[in-house]
């Protein structure tokens, strides 16, 4: 069976070891492992001939990269202007209350992660919540329970 290191090595060989591949590599590592662990970042650094702090610096600069494991279901509340005007704050507060966590956290049982996003560009349907990559528009604070139950099938 593959160890995490050998699985990651196989992934890395798809890229030439040049600096401009750092961000594309971090994307695929996160897609494969759910987040960027210190061990993975160290391996990426070694592969590209960079220091670990360089890789860490880039990983923490960009909002897409996550340094902690993510919950089974990931809810992202849009905080764009139109969503703000249309009550995204209340939607977020309701989700925080229901899940008992703050934005940026994961429930202790690992079931849900709650995040905010600058803007998904679905402003015409504000307020918007994206659940596991699927956009739900015109979300009412009272209706957030349905998002959690996975009742937002397209």
């Amino acid at each position: 069976m593959d160890t995490p290191e050998t699985a990651l090595s196989a992934l890395l060989t798809r890229f030439t070891p040049s600096r401009d591949n750092l961000i594309p590599i971090l994307h695929v590592v996160q897609e494969a492992e759910g987040y960027l662990s210190p061990a993975s970042m160290a391996q990426v650094a070694a592969y590209l001939g960079l220091s670990e702090s360089e890789v860490h610096g880039v990983a923490t600069f960009y909002a897409s990269f996550r340094l902690k494991p993510i919950g089974k279901q990931c809810l992202k509340v849009c905080r764009g202007t139109a969503c703000h005007v249309k009550g995204a704050g209340e939607v977020l507060a309701e989700l925080e209350k229901k899940l008992g966590i703050k934005a940026g956290e994961t429930t202790p049982d690992g079931a849900y992660s709650l995040e905010t996003e600058a803007c998904f560009g679905s402003c015409a349907l504000a307020p918007v919540v994206v659940v596991d990559g699927r956009v739900s528009g015109r979300v009412e604070p009272a209706g957030v329970g349905e998002l959690l139950k996975g009742e937002n099938e397209p």
Partner: peptide, 25 residues
């Protein structure tokens, strides 16, 4: 095609270039 990674400042052209080169934007 180059995927961004969630940084508003990368809309600024010199930051975008830094990001494409694999640096902080």
């Amino acid at each position: 095609l180059v995927r961004g990674a969630g940084a508003f400042v990368c809309g600024e052209e010199t930051a975008l270039i830094a990001s494409m080169e694999g640096y902080r934007g």
